[in-house]
Structure formats: structure tokens, C-alpha cells
Write a protein that binds this DNA or RNA. Structure first.
Lengths: 136, 136
DNA sequence: GCATTATCCTACTAAATCGATAGGGTTTAA
DNA sequence: TTAAACCCTATCGATTTAGTAGGATAATGC
């Protein structure tokens, strides 16, 4: 299951991508428009800023804005920042690989075999979809 | 992330699928071979039996066995029994559909659009993979 | 018929995660 | 100087996860 954090994060990013200019948008504006708890969204946007996806401006007239062109932001980046690993098991993860405790031989493991296929497909979709694609 | 329940369940089913005959296999045998906590595996196999995937025999010489030919068991069935919905959000789920609280219009929702693609692809894989495929 | 073997079933629990909420601190524009 | 806005840390209730405990029930073989 996708966490609400990820879901809200994507919605907020798409909201920002839909702005013609790169002017700062306030948290409250997004939270009201997308029906997201203001405080929760605040923490999400904060982490997206810390991870280099968003810029922010403090004080009156401040807010958040995208640092790059939406066309240059693939969903792999977004998903990894918000949700973490794309793979369903760590043993098939590219960026978060971890060996299973119980598995003696990964090459024979049925779960590994199956989830590798799923990861490949999902990854392909995320790679070929940018924020811009979702904003239309 | 895939739950351990699902992971262990798949491993156990594959173990059973690899038996030439349909003789009952004891929980302990599988749990030792696959490094799974005996009691936890017990509860998993019990639920698979209740859901019609496995048969069981009590008493001495008892155990669990597949009720159908592994070729006839697609991973969609297995995944839905063990993990639940295949979709990452309920609003794109076939068997577990649920409307989002925050979403006013599903047709415009970026998350919906993206996750629909992911679900279609994942579903295709699970549909075209049977227990038999994973047992080789 | 009785001991042994194995599944069946219910209940409990420790730990982790999720989805927030609280409550200030700091910066900036007007 | 004041109000608007982000910044940051801490806390919290509810839920899920990954088991564990302990006995009830059923089948087998002697």
C-alpha cells in the first residue's frame, strides 16, 4: 500500500508543477485545494525541500516551489524520496538492497524471481513518467 | 513492502508444488527447509487451507498438500489471499475498490493515473505466472 | 483403546509504523 | 514592528506486523 505521505506528496508536487510561474505557493493553499491536513503536508514539503526537490521562501509571500522543470523530474526520484524502495522485497532492490535472513540461495528463490519481474516493470513505468506527464 | 506472511506463504506453496506426489507435508518439514518460524507458518497454512488453496490431513502422517495442479494456480490468487489488494491505492483496485476521502475527481487525480498503470502491469505479471512457473 | 503425532483454534504481546497534532522558533515583507 | 509564513522537534493514539503460548481435536498404528 502507498502511504498517505507519498500520495499527498505526489499531489502537492503535481499542484506545484501545474503553476505556470515558479512563484512560491503557500502550504495552506495546497492543503486546502487537495484536502490534506496542513501540518502533515508541512512536514512532507519540508522533507522534499531537504532532499533537493523543492525550494522555499520564508516570511510573508513565501512558500514552496519546484527547483526544476517538471519534465526533468522522473517519478523514480519522487517515489524513492517519499516511499523509499520501489521493489517489494529488499533482495531485489537496486538502491536499498538487503539480503534476506531466511534465504540460502537467491537464484533459486521463487519470491526473488517473481518480485524481480514486478520491480522491472514498475521501474520502467516510473522512469518513463515525469511530473510533467502527470500534470496534464 | 511485501509482508513476511506473503513471502513465507509463497515459499511454502512453491515447496508443496515441487513435490511430485500430492502426499501431505508436515509444517515442520517446510518450516525447517525454508527457515520459517514454525508457529507463524502454521497460521499461514491454516489460512490458505481455509481459503481453499490447500488441503490438510490431521494426525500421524498428516500435513498440508495442494488441492490443485500448480499450473492452475495463478499468482493473482495467491497474492490476493496472502497480501490483499494488488493495487497500491484502493481507488485503482479491482477487487478491493474504495474511494479516496480527499479526492474530488478520480479522473483528474495524478496518483490515480499513475497507480493505474502500475497496477495493470503488475496484474499482468501475476496473471501470467503460476505456481508451476515459480517451481522450476 | 490408548499413546503418539499432527493439525486446529483462540488469544495475547512486543515492536514498529502511520498519520497526524502541538507548540513554539525564525525569517521576511510591508 | 507586526503579521505572515516556513522551520523544527517532540509526542501520541491507532493500527499492523510478526510472532508466541497453550491447549483442543482428530487420525494413525500398535
Amino acid at each position: 500500500m502507498l502511504s498517505k505521505k507519498t500520495k499527498y506528496g505526489i499531489k502537492a508536487l503535481v499542484y506545484l508543477a501545474r503553476q505556470e510561474d515558479r512563484m512560491p505557493v503557500q502550504i495552506s493553499t495546497i492543503s486546502q485545494s487537495e484536502n490534506i491536513s496542513r501540518k502533515f503536508l508541512e512536514s512532507i514539503l519540508l522533507s522534499l525541500r531537504k532532499n533537493g526537490l523543492l525550494g522555499s521562501k520564508k516570511g510573508k509571500g513565501g512558500g514552496y516551489y519546484l527547483l526544476k522543470d517538471p519534465k526533468e523530474i522522473p517519478m523514480t526520484t519522487v517515489m524513492r524520496l517519499l516511499e523509499g524502495p520501489i521493489a517489494m522485497v529488499p533482495c531485489v532492490s537496486l538502491n536499498f538492497y538487503e539480503k534476506c535472513d531466511d534465504c540460502t540461495d537467491e537464484d533459486v528463490c521463487a519470491v526473488n524471481k517473481l518480485m524481480l519481474k514486478v520491480r522491472d516493470n514498475t521501474l520502467e513505468i516510473f522512469r518513463n513518467t515525469t511530473l510533467a506527464d502527470l500534470s496534464n
